[in-house]
């Protein structure tokens, strides 16, 4: 089988070279199977569930719908890059734990990426705005109640950080 030309990705600030990939490999597949970044999830691999959500040049995308080679040399941020330091949780991660928003956890990384992007744009979203912002992220365990509570907590944590 023909492999694509080697390329490199900028993932969580680091250059990672991708060697011998097949041309059709998605960004999700390369992150998970070639770079060992398993945090982005594969619940549908058809762009419907949001579990593979990453930031690509700042925008949230379903990494299952992005060809890996098309992301070459662009900034990719995955759940593993949500915090700069290991062992320190971000406001959104901490809020998900405190609110009981994590059950099986399969939707969690994608939701954390979506909520982080929402709060970057709007740190005081009303409830309908939050519901719409996360409506592309399916969760089968929680019924979303604790997740909405987590977003409230994270938003107020973020506001208290940016307001002196």
């Amino acid at each position: 089988m023909t492999t694509s030309e080697d390329f490199s990705l900028v993932v969580n600030g680091s250059h990672r070279s991708v060697v011998d990939a097949l041309p059709g490999e998605s960004l999700l597949f390369v992150l998970r199977e070639r770079l060992g970044l398993i945090g982005s999830k594969n619940a549908c691999e058809e762009g419907e569930c949001g579990s593979c959500t990453v930031r690509l040049d700042g925008e949230t995308v379903c990494s299952c719908l992005v060809l890996a080679a098309a992301a070459a040399d662009r900034e990719v941020v995955t759940i593993e890059g949500l915090t700069s330091e290991e062992a320190v949780l971000s406001d959104v991660q901490q809020a998900f734990l405190d609110a009981g928003a994590v059950q099986c956890g399969f939707c969690t990384p994608g939701l954390l990426m979506a909520v982080d992007a929402l709060l970057d744009a709007d740190d005081e979203p009303d409830e309908l705005t939050v519901r719409e912002a996360i409506s592309g992220n399916l969760c089968r365990c929680t019924g979303y109640g604790r997740i909405l509570d987590a977003v409230d907590r994270a938003a107020s944590a973020r506001r208290s950080q940016v307001t002196p």
């Binding site: 998970r32 199977e33 398993i38 982005s40 759940i79 915090t83 949780l89 734990l97 990384p109």
Partner: peptide
């Protein structure tokens, strides 16, 4: 589970 390091069955390698 919130840091992405939890290994689900599809994460095995």
């Amino acid at each position: 589970k919130v840091t992405g390091s939890f290994a689900f069955s599809s994460d095995l390698h």
